[in-house]
Design a protein around this nucleic acid. Structure first.
Length: 361
DNA sequence: GAATCGTGGAC
DNA sequence: TGTCCAAGATT
């Protein structure tokens, strides 16, 4: 597309956006903090999934100050089930930084905002443009898909370096006076019209600008390398009860997968028998009889698949009260309290000794 | 550049 | 059922 066509493209796109934009919670006002939170939640996450989390998050933490003053445990609890939990911890840390170093005002320069934890190139541009109407590119998957079709660009969008190509294009193409709406419109178009499969080209407001439609190659763009399948990992987990019927949960390490979240004790399966699980229970300072296998559970991460054999066990020696130690990161809790955090806790609840999927309750 | 880091919905 | 994917960032 020639540069002189940019204005016409902007007009067609923005006119469509004005008429068709969704009424989303973070679009009710232009609060940089709320824009920020929404952008973090929306990373690799669908709008429909984010909406209820965003609402609850704003009820709990209406302002930067509220979030900055909150306990990390509380923030993680609010993030429960949303995934990619480092987003919550990074957001919390960054909000504290803004509260302390910027007087609670979200900074409006690329350097300052980009240095915040969890704020990468896309999110920095999104906040600057959406909240402050600054003409910075906000190139996400939607934008790369849309523009790869508009300009028939065959670069592999799964490569990190490709994003810069599209950022250069957006810097040329972006509306200077409506940067906020322009970036949102590009993403909205990708979400509503220029979809990954079966794009609605006949309904597209910029179809006359689209090189891919002209050439009939909209179905082969964007080019995106396939990612390799996740590795399977056999796990064993245990629902370990004391004589009061309480259940043992433990806290995961501060880094890595599901960092700092709570779970039923579980290990990577090393043997076909229960020796490894028994040995692990021993390391907890307990002796227990493993009574029976409850069920098999499959839990799919983006790069790992856990195939978990879940067992039940009863403490027969050792005092569960001695295990109540926050610093050790494990303690016994009442069944009613176990309805949070990822597997085996987040998606299941214990009823009559059986694990039941949340949606089955 | 390639891995790591979640989850649930759509086809 | 399997596959892809959804407003990515960090290491």
């Amino acid at each position: 597309m020639k540069t002189k066509d940019n204005h016409k493209f902007q007009q067609d796109l923005l006119a469509w956006y004005d008429e068709n934009k969704r009424d989303l919670p973070w679009r009710k006002e232009r609060d940089p903090y709320k824009i920020w939170v929404s952008e973090i939640m929306l990373q690799q996450t669908r709008v429909d999934t984010v909406i209820p989390y965003f609402q609850r998050f704003m009820d709990l933490f209406p302002t930067i100050h509220d979030l900055a003053e909150a306990e990390e445990e509380t923030v993680l609890k609010a993030w429960e089930g949303l995934g990619y939990y480092s987003r919550a911890r990074n957001l919390h840390q960054a909000v504290k930084e803004v509260s302390q170093s910027y007087g609670g005002q979200v900074p409006k320069t690329e350097k300052e905002i980009g240095d915040l934890k969890g704020v990468g190139p896309y999110t920095a541009g999104a906040i600057l443009s959406i909240a402050y109407n600054i003409p910075a590119p906000a190139v996400d998957g939607n934008v790369m898909r849309v523009l790869s079709r508009i300009y028939t660009i065959y670069d592999d969008i799964s490569k990190a370096s490709t994003r810069k190509t599209f950022e250069s294009i957006v810097r040329e193409l972006i509306s200077q006076d409506r940067s906020s709406d322009f970036n949102q419109a590009l993403m909205e178009l990708g979400a509503m019209v220029c979809s990954p499969t079966n794009p609605s080209c006949l309904l597209c407001p910029v179809q006359n600008h689209c090189s891919a439609k002209a050439e009939g190659v909209q179905d082969v763009l964007p080019v995106k390398a396939k990612k390799k399948p996740p590795k399977k990992l056999k796990m064993k987990a245990v629902i370990l009860r004391d004589h009061d019927g309480r259940i043992l949960i433990e806290r995961r390490p501060d880094t890595g997968l599901l960092a700092k979240l709570w779970q039923f004790p579980n290990i990577e399966a090393e043997t076909e028998n229960l020796d490894d699980l028994t040995a692990y229970i021993t390391t907890l300072g307990l002796k227990a009889d493993i009574t029976n296998k409850v069920q098999e559970v499959k839990h799919v991460f983006s790069h790992i698949v856990w195939e978990i054999s879940v067992y039940e066990a009863i403490v027969k020696a050792g005092h569960s009260d001695e295990l109540y130690d926050e610093t050790l990161g494990r303690h016994f809790v009442q069944v009613e309290d176990v309805n949070w955090y990822p597997f085996p806790v987040s998606h299941q609840k214990i009823i009559d000794g059986a694990l039941v999927k949340k949606e089955d309750l």
